[in-house]
């Protein structure tokens, strides 16, 4: 009973649930069983959003602590918050562009430096793929394509269980047609970034 566990986290409005659906449907189309959990409700309001996906023959979508094979973090602070979920062998794909909590000025705990976060992530996992997904999304043509940059970054990670082609098909099935071109471009930006980090 082995499953590939993906924990996705970030901030409301970043397109995390849509990304998770694209992955889930691609898994189903690949003939895998897949279960997913998502938390709605307060997500529009700038709070933390997370989804959990398990690809394989299991019943519960909730990832036990220490067993996520991949952490896909749309925001650096949220990557750090998700550390207890990941296994020591996990791959982490993280957007380095921060979204500060609205009350960070009054917060007794400061927002850590991005380099501190990335180093910490490296010490807790097998490999970290860190890049500025916000910039790539803008380059692709729209800031809201950030989620597809992240998806591309995930698919390029060694050991990711889904074929790029199936994921692209799933994108076509789940994203609005008019924004597909930008989203495809964004996906490729992310894909290339992870590949490049791997080569380096």
């Amino acid at each position: 009973m082995e499953s590939y566990n993906i924990y996705i986290s970030g901030v409301g409005g970043q397109g995390i649930i849509k990304t998770s659906i694209v992955i889930g449907e691609a898994a189903m189309k690949s003939g895998l069983n897949v279960v997913m959990s998502e938390i709605h409700g307060m997500s529009q309001r700038g709070g933390v959003v997370s989804t959990e996906l398990k690809l394989g023959d299991v019943k519960s979508p909730i990832i036990e602590e220490g067993t996520a094979d991949m952490l896909l973090a749309f925001e650096p602070l949220e990557a750090l918050r998700a550390v207890p979920k990941i296994s020591e062998d996990a791959s982490i794909v993280v957007n380095t562009y921060p979204t500060y909590p609205f009350n960070i000025k009054e917060s007794s705990v400061p927002y850590p430096d991005i380099s501190v976060i990335v180093d910490e992530l490296k010490s807790k996992s097998a490999q970290v793929f860190a890049f500025d997904a916000e910039k790539f999304a803008k380059d692709a043509g729209h800031i809201l394509s950030l989620n597809m940059v992240m998806l591309g970054g995930a698919v390029a990670v060694p050991g990711f269980p889904l074929d790029k082609k199936v994921v692209l098909e799933s994108m076509k099935n789940n994203l609005p047609e008019k924004s597909l071109e930008i989203n495809m471009k964004a996906f490729e930006e992310g894909f290339r970034s992870s590949k490049k980090i791997q080569v380096d």
Binding site: G46, E65, G66, L77
Partner: peptide, 16 residues
């Protein structure tokens, strides 16, 4: 199972 913890303090992100 071994569970990783981080020592870095993490600020909260309340909804607003």
């Amino acid at each position: 199972r071994k569970v990783s913890k981080t020592e870095i303090p993490i600020p909260a992100r309340p909804p607003t």
